[in-house]
Design a protein around this nucleic acid. Structure first.
Lengths: 342, 342
DNA sequence: GTTAGCACTCTAACAGATAGAGTGCTAACA
DNA sequence: TGTTAGCACTCTATCTGTTAGAGTGCTAAC
């Protein structure tokens, strides 16, 4: 549906005023803040029509208007003037992210912190998940006589480690045997290929040494699992407390903590180059019905890998946040790609 | 100061009732909940004296009494009956923590999550900091032709990694040279000994190869710094929102996020085997004046290494939380020690 | 030293009353 | 036909009493 130019102007004003102040807007207040060269009565008439069309709502009969979910949607799709980040700020952000250690997790952590600061929203992000990632290297570092730390590095740059306890002493030939088994059977394989069945048949084939090497192989398989699993990072939750009249902050924070639903939601929303915006009930989660979710995928070496997302009340500053999020996903992707480039 | 037996009984009842309900206690209500075989008038007289002594307070003239900071202190020091965790629950906790990867960070994360669940408080913890820790192993894993990931493992079990970018190709002899330099100059050294000056003189001594190896050495020094640095973990913040009438949750969460003050606070409070309790203004932080802080150190291989702490309103269930925290620090310490045992 | 009784105080909860912001409708106007 | 001024109306937030109830401190008797 296409609104008249004047209606669009009025709708945009209502949305922007309400985003800025959090107060419902009346016809008179609206005229004060965005001159329209018509009287308040005319504005009232237009507003009544916008109400009838479902773009704005009244919290109660004699109050000003507030954008409805539909109103925000129309605004975002048709009326919004994106506000680009100034170059100066972009530089600042870039340098902060580059100060991270270069590991994907750390890069995301830095990026998330920056995002939380500049957007005043809760930030969720997922670690890169590359279906084609393979095991690149496995290291076994003895710690005690019967304990060792195993470290796994995947081709997507993910580093995981786990301590492994053995039933007997870790001798040099065991270590050598292990490295042989690893380079023959695991290096270059994807995490999915490391199945329990595979570990078992492998253990059997080792005969008498099987007992000693088995714990190591199990740890290896655990690590493969961990490498493959997408992790959800959560930052800036306390920002949500800044908004009065914004649902039950506790409920939202608890929902975010139970990260599973969001992780699978993000994983299933690939193939979106531009930021995607879900306003209010447009998302499927009961706990987020009063929230807007903006998320965007970052790509590592040309492949979409993970997601950065913002969660806040429906009255967030879309015009500012969307470009910010877009910039952050671009920079995260490019820094991660840089690290991995051959 | 020693109170009469009856006063102690009354004070204990007030504290326990208020902790349980959050409501100020009057003389009559108190009698209903803990039979004392005296009349409410007598209780009132005793309460008046307790008020005069500063152990209890009245929010307003005609309301019930609430324990003062002094009252809580007396209760904790003299009246409290500790409630031990049932063995069953201890088992459950232990198994959950053992499911972690064995790395200190992960163990702490698991333990913190458990603590947050059973205490309904915010949980802070610091990663182990062992002044005598030395660099145990350094690994260099090539990722691209000009990038490599460096991994450092300390004798205290801390694992850190960082991506290193080089100006030229990473040849095999460079790698060999690097490993030689590392085993000769860094293995067995403490992080403090890895100074900028040391790196510089070392680089100079390498002559023409210096240019290539320098970036690696700088990364190495960065890693040493990271290994040495104590990190603060933060969990269960949203628990603080459960308490109505408990200061400004936002302010407290923001304070916790700016982790520096707490980190240095904990580091300076070593040498305390039992949990330490700071009630209300007993702690130095303006933001935590309405909170109680309970913290306890965990020991790895007999040496105090890090801290687990609880933060909640002054009316938390000391009798239950203190033993829980104590148990958690013991188990964290023993699991970490297990991992490192020679 | 303990207790019953009483006057007193303060709060939370409820009920009007009022000001103000905003609306929709109508009639007049360009 | 679109625009505007004017007006009656509505609803909320705020303030002001009022009241019930919980709790106190004090006094006098036991």
């Amino acid at each position: 549906m296409k609104l008249s130019e004047r209606k669009e102007k009025i709708l945009a004003s209502i949305v922007e005023y309400y985003i800025a102040t959090g107060e419902p807007v009346g016809s008179k207040t609206l005229l004060e803040h965005s001159p329209l060269s018509v009287s308040s009565a005319t504005v009232r008439n237009e507003m009544a029509e916008l109400s009838a069309l479902g773009f704005i709502e009244q919290p109660h009969t004699s109050s000003g208007r507030v954008p409805s979910q539909l109103g925000y949607r129309y605004y975002v799709d048709n009326l919004m003037n994106s506000y680009e980040l100034p170059v100066q700020e972009k530089r600042l952000i870039e340098s902060r992210i580059l100060s991270a250690s270069g590991e994907p997790q750390q890069i995301l952590e830095q990026a998330g912190q920056v995002l939380a600061e500049i957007t005043n929203c809760a930030v969720v992000s997922t670690t890169p998940c590359d279906e084609h990632a393979v095991i690149r290297r496995v290291e076994l570092v003895p710690i005690g006589t019967r304990t060792a730390m195993m470290i796994m590095l995947s081709s997507s740059g993910i580093l995981k480690s786990k301590v492994c306890k053995l039933d007997c002493e870790l001798s040099l030939d065991i270590i050598e045997l292990f490295y042989n088994v690893v380079s023959k059977n695991f290096i270059g394989k994807s995490a999915e290929e490391v199945s329990v069945a595979m570990i078992q048949t492998l253990a059997l084939s080792l005969g008498s040494k099987s007992l000693v090497v088995s714990p190591l192989l199990i740890t290896l398989s655990d690590l493969a699992q961990m490498t493959e699993q997408t992790q959800l990072l959560l930052q800036g939750q306390s920002n949500l407390l800044n908004y009065t009249d914004y649902g039950n902050a506790y409920e939202i924070m608890e929902f975010l903590r139970r990260s599973d639903p969001l992780t699978s939601f993000f994983s299933s929303r690939k193939n979106a180059d531009a930021p995607r915006i879900l306003i209010g009930k447009e998302n499927q989660f009961r706990e987020l019905q009063d929230s807007s979710v903006i998320f965007s995928n970052y790509s590592v070496s040309g492949k979409e890998s993970g997601t950065l997302g913002l969660i806040g009340p429906t009255r967030i500053d879309y015009a500012r946040l969307i470009p910010s999020l877009k910039y952050l996903t671009e920079i995260v992707g490019s820094i991660m790609s840089d690290t991995l480039e051959e």
